[in-house]
C-alpha cells in the first residue's frame, strides 16, 4: 500500500502544510510518495525529498501546472492515483480546489479536512462549524482525503533522502487560464503556521487601530488575524480572516481582542492550546472558551500589554 501526498508550494518553496499532510499519511501507514506539480519547481522537489518519512518524490514540471489550475492538475493526479490506496492533499485553498475534482473523476466521495486517523479507512472530521465530530469510514478503492494541518504535528523537513522521479504526460486542458494574482505582503509569520496569533475584531473600530495589535504581535513573534466582522468592515484584508470560512489555526497561544466569539469564529481557533480574550463585554461568548479572560477596554489593555512584554 502506498500513499500519494500532493505538495503545497509556490514553485520556489514547499509550504509547511505539506509536512502536516505527510504526518497524516504516515499515521495511515505505507510508503509515502509526494507529488510536486508546478513549473520550474525543482527546488521544491529537492526540499520534498528531504522531508522525513517520504519514500519517493514525483515531479511534474510543466507550464500547464504553474498555477495549479484544477482543470490541468486533476487529470494528472487521476492518472497517478491508480497505483495508490490513498491520495492526500492539505486542506489549503489549493487542495480544496483541485482534490474534489480528482475524487469525482475517480468516482469516489472525498473526505474533507480530517483531524484524526482512526485506521487506514476510518477518519474523524469536524462538521457544523466544529460543533460536532464525525467518524467516517470509506470503502473506496482509492481514498481521497484533505488534511486539516492543525490536526497533525508536522514531520521534520530535514533528514530524508527520497529519490526524485519525473512524471506526467498531461498538458493544458485548455478550459481555463491564469490571469494574475495579488498576494498580500507581510513580514510576520504565516497565520496558519504561527505559534502565537493575535486577532482583532469589530471592537478594533478601524484599520489604523490594528497597529496596536501589530505592536504586541511583533514583541511576541506572532501572526495577526481577524474576525469576519473586521474583514467585512474593511479594517484588514480577507486573507487574515480566522473562522469557518477563513483560516483554521491552532497555535500555542491565541489572543482574541475585541472579538465577541461567534460560532463561525470559534470554528477557526478553538483548538488553540491557550486562548486569551480581551473584551469589555463580560457577557461575550468568547469568555466561555478563553483560558484567561480580561474584561477591559482594549484601547487601554493592549498598549499596557505591549509595554509589559
Amino acid at each position: 500500500m502506498a500513499i500519494l501526498v500532493i505538495a503545497e508550494h509556490n514553485n520556489s518553496a514547499l509550504a509547511a502544510a505539506t509536512l502536516n499532510t505527510v504526518a497524516a499519511a504516515l499515521q495511515i501507514g505505507g510508503d509515502v510518495h509526494v507529488l510536486v506539480a508546478g513549473a520550474g519547481c525543482g527546488a521544491v522537489a529537492e526540499a520534498a525529498a528531504k522531508v522525513a518519512g517520504v519514500a519517493k518524490v514525483l515531479v511534474a514540471d510543466n507550464t500547464a501546472f504553474a498555477h495549479q489550475l484544477p482543470e490541468n492538475l486533476a487529470p494528472l493526479i487521476v492518472e497517478l492515483a491508480r497505483g495508490y490506496s490513498h491520495v492526500l492533499a492539505p486542506a489549503t485553498t489549493n487542495g480544496k480546489n483541485y482534490l474534489p475534482r480528482v475524487a469525482a473523476l475517480i468516482d469516489v466521495e472525498q473526505i474533507s479536512e480530517i483531524i484524526k486517523v482512526v485506521s487506514a479507512d476510518t477518519f474523524q472530521r469536524p462538521i457544523y462549524a466544529g460543533n460536532a465530530i464525525a467518524t467516517v469510514q470509506s470503502s473506496a478503492a482509492v481514498k481521497v482525503i484533505t488534511v486539516r494541518a492543525t490536526g497533525f504535528d508536522p514531520v521534520a523537513g530535514e533528514g530524508g533522502s527520497a529519490a526524485i522521479e519525473s512524471v506526467g504526460t498531461v498538458s493544458d486542458a485548455g478550459l481555463s487560464a491564469f490571469v494574475g494574482e495579488e498576494i498580500a505582503k507581510s513580514e510576520r509569520p504565516e497565520l496558519t503556521g504561527a505559534k502565537i496569533v493575535v486577532s482583532g475584531g469589530r471592537g478594533m473600530q478601524n484599520g489604523d487601530n490594528f497597529q496596536l495589535l501589530y505592536g504586541v504581535a511583533d514583541k511576541l513573534g506572532a501572526a495577526v488575524g481577524a474576525s469576519r466582522a473586521a474583514v467585512d468592515a474593511g479594517f484588514v484584508p480577507n486573507d487574515m480572516q480566522v473562522g469557518q470560512t477563513g483560516k483554521i489555526v491552532a497555535p500555542q497561544l491565541y489572543v482574541a481582542v475585541g472579538i465577541s466569539g461567534a460560532i463561525q469564529h470559534l470554528a477557526g481557533m478553538k483548538d488553540s492550546k491557550v486562548i486569551v480574550a480581551i473584551n469589555k463585554d463580560e457577557e461575550a461568548p468568547i469568555f466561555q472558551v478563553a483560558d484567561y479572560g480580561l474584561v477591559a477596554d482594549l484601547f487601554e489593555a493592549v498598549p499596557e500589554l505591549e509595554r509589559a512584554l
Partner: peptide, 29 residues
C-alpha cells in the same frame, strides 16, 4: 463510498479564569 459511524460532541475546553489586570495576565501566560 462513505459511511458515518458516529457523531460526537467535540472535547469541551476546561473552564478558564478571569484575570484582574494586564500584569496578572502576563504573569499567568
Amino acid at each position: 463510498t462513505v459511511k458515518v459511524l458516529k457523531v460526537e460532541a467535540p472535547a469541551a475546553r476546561k473552564a478558564g479564569i478571569k484575570v484582574g489586570s494586564v500584569a496578572e495576565l502576563v504573569d499567568k501566560l
